[in-house]
Amino acid sequence: MLNKDFKIYIAGHRGMVGGAIWKALAKKGYSNLVGKTSAELDLRDQAQVKSFFERENPDVVVDAAARVGGILANSRYPYQFLMDNMLIQNNLIDAAHVSGCEKFIFLGSSCIYPKLAPQPLKEEYLLTSSLEPTNEWYALAKIAGVKACEAIRNQFGKDFISLMPTNLYGSHDNFDLETSHVLPAMIRKFHEAKESGDAPVTLWGSGRPKREFLHVDDLAQAVIFAMENRFEDNLYNVGTGEDLSIEELAKLIQDITGHQGKILWDDSKPDGTPRKLMDVSKMADAGWKYSIPLKDGIERTYKWFLENIQSIKEVKF
């Protein structure tokens, strides 16, 4: 068990994931939390990150900072997705190691696994085949982060661990239609179509690919679990172990938002990976399991969306 006074630095604490982790830690009594906005600390700048670690010397680091986005954003900005994420994580990992930090939690994504890997996705499938082209730049960066943490763990014996969440959603998500992921984009599309007299909603692809979704508050609990325990291995999947088709997801969100119009599928647009179901048996064996059902989680997220609809910020590149 960590001392509740340990200094915990959460990189990306203003984002959906980092904010959820901060809130969960504070609720559990951790009082020495550190966070910096991008204006206060540019994580892409090695000198700034090094100076920050020399000043703060955190006991634990959680890397929830990343440039993220859906298929459209990944395809439009491949260089930023590769380079920004490499710079952010490399600076954090190295500065944490050099400063003597013994506990580092690196957060990645299920997209690190090959496009056509067997389902469900096991941790040992990493680097066994080609990646999904629509998000390979982000995936390549995250794979490098996983391997950097593994190298430090193997060479120096430090507790640097990588958690690979499945598709995340929840409060403070990105609802911008150009850069968001599929679930928040659907919430916004169905809501706006309902407000426009139940206009038809056009969605990308065929609707056949299957996806798994985890509420961000569940991920926050998984991060705390990893902080408070020492795992035997360096890489763990975090998810529900359950998936559904994009068409099923669309119908669920349509029902929750109250949209009564038609759903149209634009199969000229890419589907992405056919299926991404996580094998979460390693986390289960370690003692952790998710708790928020998908329908409940989407209802919570839609409620937050409605309460914050006037202040939701659109991410721009």
Rank of each mutant, 00 (worst) to 15 (best):
residue 52 F to L: 13
residue 238 V to E: 02
residue 272 G to Y: 05
residue 117 A to P: 12
residue 246 I to T: 11
residue 244 L to H: 07
residue 31 S to V: 14
residue 254 Q to I: 02
residue 80 Q to W: 06
residue 201 V to R: 01
residue 89 Q to Y: 07
residue 78 P to H: 10
residue 75 S to W: 00
residue 76 R to C: 02
residue 236 Y to D: 04
residue 166 T to Q: 03
residue 222 A to H: 12
residue 70 G to V: 10
residue 89 Q to I: 01
residue 158 K to A: 01
residue 281 S to P: 06
residue 104 F to I: 03
residue 250 A to S: 15
residue 143 I to F: 08
residue 172 H to C: 02
residue 10 I to L: 07
residue 19 G to A: 05
residue 166 T to S: 15
residue 50 K to T: 15
residue 235 L to A: 03
residue 287 G to M: 01
residue 92 L to E: 01
residue 145 G to M: 04
residue 171 S to W: 04
residue 249 L to W: 12
residue 180 S to L: 00
residue 140 L to H: 07
residue 262 K to L: 12
residue 37 T to N: 09
residue 215 H to E: 11
residue 146 V to L: 14
residue 182 V to E: 10
residue 3 N to G: 08
residue 132 E to D: 15
residue 221 Q to A: 11
residue 89 Q to H: 13
residue 100 G to I: 08
residue 262 K to Y: 05
residue 163 L to S: 07
residue 47 A to L: 10
residue 229 N to M: 03
residue 251 K to G: 10
residue 186 M to C: 11
residue 18 G to E: 04
residue 208 R to C: 01
residue 96 A to V: 07
residue 186 M to D: 04
residue 148 A to D: 09
residue 194 K to C: 06
residue 283 M to V: 04
residue 304 W to Q: 05
residue 18 G to F: 10
residue 210 K to T: 15
residue 273 T to D: 11
residue 168 L to A: 03
residue 226 A to L: 02
residue 271 D to M: 03
residue 57 N to T: 14
residue 223 V to K: 03
residue 189 K to L: 15
residue 18 G to M: 04
residue 110 S to H: 11
residue 158 K to R: 15
residue 72 L to K: 14
residue 270 P to L: 05
residue 176 D to C: 14
residue 116 L to R: 11
residue 197 G to Y: 12
residue 297 G to K: 07
residue 172 H to L: 02
residue 316 K to N: 08
residue 289 K to S: 13
residue 48 Q to N: 09
